[in-house]
Design a binder for these strands. Structure first.
Length: 438
RNA sequence: GUGGGUGUAGCUCAGCUGGUAGAGCACCGGGUUGUGAUCCCGGUUGUCGCGGGUUCGAGCCCCGUCACUCACCCCA
C-alpha cells in the first residue's frame, strides 16, 4: 500500500506534541473546575435543522449518512460548535439541572471549510458557559473572561489579550446616529482591520447612512483603552441614547474588574463586532501576542435567548477557546515544546535477555511508587540503550547490574535502591516550556 | 464554492537552453572490544504526486487529474 498523506484540515500530532496538548487540556480542566464549572460532553451529532438555526444557511456542516443508506441522510450533522449542542442539552435536561448552571466542555467540532493556516475542519474547542433561567445576572459577563485569562496565565503561551465590546453600546450608538439596522453597520465595522476605514466608509455609505453618522461610527470604532476611560471618549462623541448608556456602564464594569484582576490582559475595543447576531451584551475576542494574524483564539459573548422552549428562555454567557488554533501555531513554530515524547521518567536497562526479569523487578518497584518506568526493548549495548532514552527525552537510565541510576542531562551516575530512589518531582512528568523565538 | 502558488530521499530543499538525480540534516555501521549527545570514517535512502501527450530522449515542455498551500467567504 502506498504511504498515505495527511488529510488537510484534520490535524494529528506527534507523541511529543500530544503531550503538550494534553498538558494544555489538563490545565484548562483544572482551572475550570477550580471555578466550579461542571464537565459536560454532548454527542457528536445534532439534527441538521438545529445546527443551522444559529447563523447563516450556508454553514459548512458535515452530514452523517450510513454508507448503505438507501434514501439520503438521516438528518444528522456533526456539530459545528459547542454552544448549539449545549443549548439543546439545557432545554432537554432543564428539569434535572440547577440554575445558574456553569459548565465546561472540551470537545472536537467539525466545519467543512477550506483549511488554512489556523483553520481546521476538525478541531478542539474548550468552552465555558453560564446559563440561568429567565434572567442572568450581569456579573457573569465580568467573571467569565477572567476565568479563561487566568487559565492562559498558567499556560506556556505568549501573552493573550482579550478585546471586549458590548452589543448594547454598539447598537444604541448606531441607532442613535440613524442606522435602521445596526447589525449591518456592525458587520461593516468588523472588517475595519482587514479592509481599512475607507472601504468601510464606502460600504456604510451604500446603506444610506449620512456622512456625519459614518464619521461617528468610525470614531467609535477607533476607541481602544486598557481601562474604563473609553467611556469618556464615547461621551465625547456627543451621541445620547439609553441603550448606549447601558452598554457603556456594563463595559465599564468589565474593565474595572479586569484592571485589578487581569492587568494588561483585557482592553475595551469598540470595533469588536463578532459575526454572530445572537449576542446581546458583552462580546469577547482574544489575540495571541505576536500571532495577531491568526485572528481570535478565544471568543464569545452574552446571549439572551439562544435556548428557549417558548415558555422559558435561558440566557447565558460563554467563551470558547480555540485549542487547535493555538497549538497548531505554537507547535509548528516550535514556540512550545515538551521535554520528552513519552511519559517515561526512567528507562531500566537490560543486561542480557536471561536477566530481563531483574530489570522488570526494578521497574515494578519504581512504578509502585508512581514513577513512570519502561524497560529497554532489547539487551543492546548500553550505549544504544542510553540512546533509546536520550532520543525520547527520558531523563533517567537505571542499570540493574550494579544498581545505579544515571542522569542523562548531567551524565552523573549514583548507586540507588529501587525500593527507595525517587527522581526530582519535576522529572515525574514531561516538562512543557515556552521557547522564545531566537 | 472561486482564484493564485507548489508537488524531487524520512525532513528542508538544489537540479542550467530538455541529455537517464544531488546537498545538508536524519538514519544505520565502525572508530570506542557493554555507558548517549561531540568528533572522525564508511553506508543506505527515490515509481521526480498520478495519467496521458510532444520528443531520439522529459524532473524540466503541453494537457488532464489529485494532493498540499495561500487568498476570498466565514470563523476557534
Amino acid at each position: 500500500m502506498a504511504r498515505p498523506t495527511p488529510l488537510s484540515g484534520f490535524p494529528e500530532w506527534l507523541p511529543g506534541e500530544r503531550i503538550v496538548e494534553q498538558h494544555v487540556l489538563d490545565t484548562l480542566r483544572r482551572v475550570y473546575e477550580l471555578h466550579g464549572f461542571a464537565s459536560l460532553e454532548t454527542r457528536a451529532v445534532e439534527p441538521i435543522d438545529q445546527l443551522l438555526r444559529k447563523g447563516e444557511i450556508d454553514k459548512e456542516v458535515y452530514v452523517l449518512r450510513r454508507l448503505h443508506a438507501e434514501d439520503g441522510d438521516a438528518g444528522l450533522g456533526l456539530h459545528f460548535d459547542l454552544t448549539v449542542p449545549f443549548a439543546r442539552y439545557v432545554l432537554e435536561r432543564a428539569g434535572h439541572l440547577a440554575f445558574p448552571f456553569r459548565r465546561y466542555q472540551i470537545q472536537k467540532v467539525w466545519r467543512g471549510e477550506r483549511p488554512q493556516d489556523g483553520r481546521y475542519r476538525e478541531f478542539t474547542q474548550a468552552d465555558i458557559d453560564v446559563v440561568d433561567r429567565d434572567t442572568l445576572a450581569f456579573h457573569h459577563e465580568v467573571d467569565l473572561p477572567l476565568v479563561v485569562l487566568e487559565a492562559f496565565e498558567q499556560l506556556p503561551f505568549p501573552p493573550m489579550v482579550m478585546h471586549v465590546n458590548n452589543r448594547k453600546l454598539a447598537e444604541g450608538f448606531y441607532r442613535a446616529v440613524g442606522a435602521d439596522d445596526p447589525s449591518v453597520v456592525l458587520r461593516a465595522i468588523d472588517k475595519l482591520d482587514k479592509i481599512g476605514p475607507e472601504k468601510v466608509r464606502a460600504q456604510l455609505a451604500e446603506t444610506g447612512l449620512s456622512a456625519t453618522a459614518i464619521d461617528a461610527c468610525l470614531g467609535l470604532a477607533e476607541i481602544t483603552t486598557p481601562d474604563a476611560s473609553f467611556a469618556d471618549r464615547v461621551r465625547g462623541l456627543g451621541v445620547r441614547d439609553p441603550l448606549l448608556d447601558e452598554g457603556v456602564d456594563e463595559l465599564v464594569r468589565v474593565l474595572d474588574a479586569a484592571v485589578t484582576r487581569a492587568p494588561g490582559r483585557l482592553v475595551a475595543d469598540l470595533k469588536v463586532a463578532r459575526g454572530l447576531d445572537y449576542y446581546t451584551g458583552t462580546v469577547y475576542e482574544t489575540v495571541m501576542t505576536g500571532h495577531e494574524d491568526l485572528g481570535s483564539v478565544c471568543s464569545g459573548g452574552r446571549y439572551d435567548a439562544l435556548a428557549s422552549d417558548g415558555k422559558t428562555t435561558y440566557p447565558g454567557v460563554g467563551v470558547s477557546i480555540g485549542v487547535s488554533r493555538i497549538l497548531g501555531r505554537l507547535l509548528k513554530t516550535g514556540s512550545v515544546v515538551s521535554s520528552r515524547s513519552v511519559p517515561t521518567a526512567v528507562l531500566v536497562a537490560v543486561d542480557d535477555e536471561e536477566s530481563r526479569s531483574v530489570s522488570d523487578d526494578v521497574a515494578r518497584a519504581l512504578r509502585r511508587r508512581g514513577i513512570p518506568t519502561e524497560v529497554a526493548p532489547s539487551a543492546a549495548k548500553f550505549g544504544k540503550q542510553i540512546r533509546h532514552a536520550d532520543r525520547r527525552g527520558i531523563p533517567w537510565v537505571w542499570f540493574p547490574g550494579d544498581s545505579t541510576v544515571k542522569d542523562l542531562r548531567t551524565g552523573g551516575q549514583t548507586a540507588a535502591d529501587p525500593a527507595a530512589w525517587t527522581p526530582p518531582l519535576e522529572d515525574l512528568t514531561p516538562c512543557i516550556t515556552e521557547e522564545k523565538p531566537s
